[in-house]
């Protein structure tokens, strides 16, 4: 069994490496033989440009600026979304009162809120953190509330006839049973946060990967555009993997579908 797990892990890593190698190979061939335009560079000059940006600390600055906003907004949004979701899932009056809110706001995408957030908070950090928090909250609320609703009836009854009071049922049964749903909601919210941050930085920002994309377009630095795109892909990929590992560590043991 251990052998099988090792093999499947090796296979996964090998799959990633080969998959990315194949992607870059196709990209290279396409740029050499198919498109042949300065607007579509081969990965080689892009990597060279990326290395130069790293040596000048510019790429790191942009990545750190964007990631800091994502993290701050994401943590703020989760810190609000989890308790609200728990309350909606646990108490009927709260659900009846707040469900219209979540059902209303989740159809107003964060990118549509960029203008109003810039008017309210300016083009500094606050507007981006607001937008990321906004996009995080509703996903986390809905996932958390659904998780509370999905706690098996027998799990709660078993606790009651072992002597649990209402608080113990909530803290020792409903809450841990909901953790996998919360983490899944946060994982979805994180991918939304990537979409939102780029859009927000494109429109109004002094730094970050979105700003890098925007400047590169202004000055026709095609390699810079590709460096920013690849960075986004890699960052999102790495973040999502980390989340999946966390979900596995906390929840995967008892929920093999995660």
């Amino acid at each position: 069994m251990n052998d099988g797990m090792m093999n499947s892990r090796t296979a996964t890593v090998a799959g990633y490496v080969l998959g990315f190698a194949l992607l870059f190979a196709i990209w290279h061939l396409a740029s050499q033989y198919l498109v042949r335009s300065v607007l579509f560079p081969s990965p080689i000059p892009v990597f060279i440009r990326g290395w130069a940006l790293i040596e000048d600390q510019l790429l790191q600055e942009a990545v750190i600026a964007s990631m800091r906003r994502i993290l701050q907004g994401f943590l703020l949004g989760s810190a609000i979304g989890i308790p609200v979701g728990l309350a909606i899932g646990s108490f009927r009056p709260v659900r009846l009162l707040l469900e219209p809110w979540t059902e209303f706001f989740r159809f107003i995408p964060a990118v549509a809120m960029i203008t109003v957030s810039v008017i309210w908070f300016g083009i500094g950090e606050e507007s981006k953190i607001f937008l990321i928090a906004y996009t995080t909250i509703f996903v986390v609320v809905i996932a958390t509330a659904a998780g509370v609703g999905a706690v098996g009836r027998d799990k709660i009854r078993a606790a009651q006839c072992l002597g649990a009071n209402r608080f113990q049922v909530f803290a020792l049964v409903a809450l841990p049973a909901t953790v996998p749903y919360i983490l899944t909601g946060m994982r979805l919210a994180m991918s939304n946060a990537f979409v939102t941050i780029v859009a927000a930085e494109l429109v109004a920002s002094n730094d970050g990967l979105g700003k890098m994309l925007w400047d590169a377009r202004l000055f026709m630095q095609v390699e810079d555009i590709f460096v920013a795109l690849i960075s986004l892909g890699l960052l999102g990929f790495a973040t999502d993997r980390t989340f999946r590992l966390l979900i596995r560590a906390f929840a995967g043991r008892f929920n093999p579908t995660m």
Binding site: K155, A158, V173, V179, F254
Partner: peptide, 8 residues
């Protein structure tokens, strides 16, 4: 059933 056990 055995859904009443705590998986965690």
């Amino acid at each position: 059933g055995h859904d009443s056990l705590y998986d965690w």
